[in-house]
Amino acid sequence: MAFFKVQGIVKFFGGLAAVNGVSFEVKEGEICGLIGPNGSGKTTIFNLINGYFALAKGEIQFQGEKISGLKTHQICQRGVGRTFQVVKPLKRMTVLDNVIASAFLRHHPRSDAVKLAEETIEFCGLTHYKDKIAKSLPIASRKRLEITRALATQPKLILLDETAAGLNPHELEEAIRLIKKIRDSGITIIIVEHIMKVIMTISDHIVAINHGMVIAKGTPAEVVSNPEVIKAYFGEDYRA
């Protein structure tokens, strides 16, 4: 039984098949990178896993159970957390309140939720910003807040959508360290990322997609040397 399995999922936007028969599996405890050029359907796949969009065809299984067809909040309750590429902080709440609201999912008395929220904030290195209003944070910290909030729901699988985009080299190092730390704490990760440095250093396994279809799967080294992947990124002329 695969920990997480996507089987032949299809999603149309009007007449366009944004995701067209994508299948892949993720083993427990690994980091799976999802790469592909702009508009290839990576975020759409996240939205399908997350239940934000309904599937046209196919099935998504998590821990042996079908999760496609469930509502977004139910999928989160099953243990799949996500972050948004375009960050969605709860703007007029403090960082702590953002995370407490998440922590309430599995921790009922308020004091328990606050405790978990504070631990998660410390784990992600946001302690410094704890009492700041979320909309006042710089972008790197907002991305971090997205992760913190997702972690506070105590997921078994977390979907990270371009959490390293727009960060400077120093922030990038920190982001990589955080992602590894999340993996080491036993959470399986699927990550969408454009920055090759991030994806190559942390992924155990990469799925490359283009035009909504899987064009390559394998270890980072295998995928980057795959002719289809090079063609998708650089065009015909660079074909190896």
């Binding site: 934000y52 909040h73 969605k88 709860l90 007029r92 609201a101």
Partner: peptide, 17 residues
């Protein structure tokens, strides 16, 4: 308040909006 601030974020935090 989470729902007021961002309904999609709230939903993905496991809140039955």
């Amino acid at each position: 308040v989470s729902i007021r601030e961002d309904q999609d974020a709230a939903e993905s935090m496991g809140i039955d909006t």
